[in-house]
Design a protein around this nucleic acid. Structure first.
Length: 271
DNA sequence: ATGGGCACCTGGCTGC
DNA sequence: TGCAGCCAGGTGCCCA
């Protein structure tokens, strides 16, 4: 489900409820996430105050006084802020109960999400330490992408989805960014001229920022911390629009498979 | 180093 | 109505 805009929207949504609150209790109903949640997680975090809520790539980092929770939403996860007494739904796997009486509830039907605890710098956690630059940061720019794309034979879309190249760009925003840059997703990364890659870095930033502003994209199950969907779906140019007319040139949008994922593009606008 | 394919899991939809 | 098959916002790991 969630790519960078959805994770960032979630971060912004949970921040006010978490910041400076103390954790009264953690309830892990289902520890079998992508990695098994450590058995003593509740004991380790109980009583600690929340110092910050950050995002790195698609990971949420909840910094406490003596460590950090590292949370990933996987494909189908969401976090909601609810009254502690709110009725449970299926797949409500974890509750973080705060001293305000509110509760941060993690729901994840497919259990591709994860919850780790670290008592050292979370950015040096094995899952995070080798991640590429943030797409919205200044070090993700034309020079960088040109350098990385050099001599690479992979299709540009797959390059964009590689977290060693840039983080946070998933299946939706890879297709959307390539549309806005007018680049065909199947083009070999190393054969795209510098000027086009420069347009692409800009397109990625614009698309991600627009999506954050719209509260993310809801296709099926994504909801923000208040339980409401994102509105960026209405602004998608190609994703899940196979056969529908291109919003620019009216040519039917094409759907292909790349690396076992669906890719969408306009055969006229993207070359 | 690079690239490709699989695995993990549940649920919703399609078509027989 | 039932059920098999396919698809879905991710990504770590294993293999060539």
């Amino acid at each position: 489900m969630p790519e960078l805009p959805e994770v960032e929207t979630t971060r912004q949504g949970i921040y006010p409820a978490l910041i400076d609150r103390r954790i009264d209790k953690v309830i892990v109903r289902e520890p079998r996430l992508r990695w098994r949640v450590i058995p003593d997680l509740a004991a380790r975090v109980q009583g600690q105050r929340v110092l910050d809520v950050r995002r790195r790539a698609k990971y949420l980092l909840i910094d406490l006084e003596r460590g950090s929770l590292i949370l990933h939403l996987g494909m189908s996860g969401n976090l909601r802020v609810l009254p502690q007494t709110a009725p449970l739904l299926t797949h409500d796997h974890v509750d973080v109960i705060l001293d305000s009486g509110q509760c941060l509830r993690f729901n994840d039907p497919r259990r591709f999400g994860s919850l780790h605890w670290t008592e050292t710098d979370p950015l040096e956690h094995p899952l995070l330490e080798n991640l590429a630059p943030e797409p919205l940061g200044d070090d993700f720019n034309a020079d960088y992408l040109v350098d990385v794309a050099q001599r690479r034979h992979v299709a540009i879309k797959q390059l964009l989805m590689n977290s060693q190249v840039v983080v946070g760009v998933g299946n939706i925003y890879a297709s959307e960014s390539l549309f806005r840059a007018g680049i065909r997703p199947t083009r070999a990364a190393g054969k795209i001229p510098r000027a086009r890659l420069a347009q692409l870095t800009d397109a990625i930033k614009v698309v991600l920022n627009d999506a954050i502003r719209a509260g993310g994209t809801t296709l099926r199950d994504y909801v923000n911390a208040s339980g409401t969907p994102g509105y960026f779906r209405q602004k998608l140019f190609v994703y899940e629009r196979a056969g529908e007319p291109c919003r620019i040139c009216r040519a039917p949008i094409k759907q292909i498979a790349q690396g076992q994922r669906s890719t969408y593009y306009c055969p006229k606008c993207q070359t």
